[in-house]
Structure formats: C-alpha cells, structure tokens
C-alpha cells in the first residue's frame, strides 16, 4: 500500500491514503487541548460572546476530526461535498427556524396572554 504523507490533488487514485500515527496522535492531543480550552472559556464571562467562542472551538474540533480522522483531506472531493451539503442543509434549517420564530413569536405570546386573561 502506498504510504506518502505529502499528497497532491486526487486526480488519479493510487490506493488508500494511510495517515501516519504521529499525525493521529497530534490530532488527539490538539482535540483534548481544545476541549480543555472550551471548558475554561465556558466558565469565563466573555461579554455575550460565550456562545460564539464555544461554537467556534467546536467547529474547529469538528473540522479537524472530518479532515484527518475521517480522511476527508485525502479522500475523493465528492465525499467531502456531500458532507458540506449536509452542513449547509442544517444551516438552512436553523436559519429558517430562527426567521420564523422572529416573525411569529409575538403572535404566540399575544395569543397566550389572551388565553390567561378571562
């Protein structure tokens, strides 16, 4: 099996890419470090940026897992595209959910207030 660490664009497929043990171990240490970081920042007052910082760290962790552990960096681009598509659909779902909420929550609240009055 081919075992080359510097890999060029995947035009032709030369057998599977084998990730070196050193890289896998480095990724584990980085992921554990980022987990520690998110626990520490989670306990600090970041003036409204708490959620943004937590999500940024989680996204970095998830990207590393996808690219290295899940081989997407060396894999066929189409597999990565499928996963990106899933993330985009999730974003679309979230965005429309939040938009809808912003639009109609006032009506729900008004309805509830009416129900309690009499």
């Amino acid at each position: 099996m081919s075992n080359h660490d510097s890999h060029e664009e995947h035009c032709e497929h030369k057998g599977p890419h084998v990730v070196s043990l050193g890289l896998l171990a480095t990724v584990l240490i980085v992921l554990l470090g980022l987990t520690g970081l998110t626990v520490v920042t989670g306990k600090m007052d970041l003036h409204g940026f708490d959620l943004a910082v937590a999500m940024l760290i989680a996204t970095v962790k998830a990207s590393i897992v996808c690219l290295i552990f899940m081989h997407l960096y060396w894999d066929r681009k189409f597999n990565g595209m499928i996963f990106l598509f899933a993330v985009m659909l999730l974003g679309l779902f979230l965005a429309f959910g939040v938009l809808d909420l912003g639009q109609y929550q006032a009506n729900v609240d008004a309805y509830r207030a009416d129900q309690i009055q009499p």
């Binding site: 066929r76 597999n79 499928i82 996963f83 899933a86 659909l89 999730l90 779902f93 979230l94």
Partner: peptide, 23 residues
C-alpha cells in the same frame, strides 16, 4: 464509501431537527 457518506448526511439531518428545537 460514497454510500456511507450519504448515510452520514441523513444522520446530520436526523439530529438537525433537535438542534433547531434547541436553537
């Protein structure tokens, strides 16, 4: 592998409904 990535896509969508409820 392609089939599994498509399955993972459906898994992300499976969880996404709960993430929308959360948000």
């Amino acid at each position: 592998k392609l089939g599994l990535w498509v399955f993972l896509l459906t898994e992300v969508l499976f969880f996404s409904a709960l993430f929308v409820a959360y948000t």
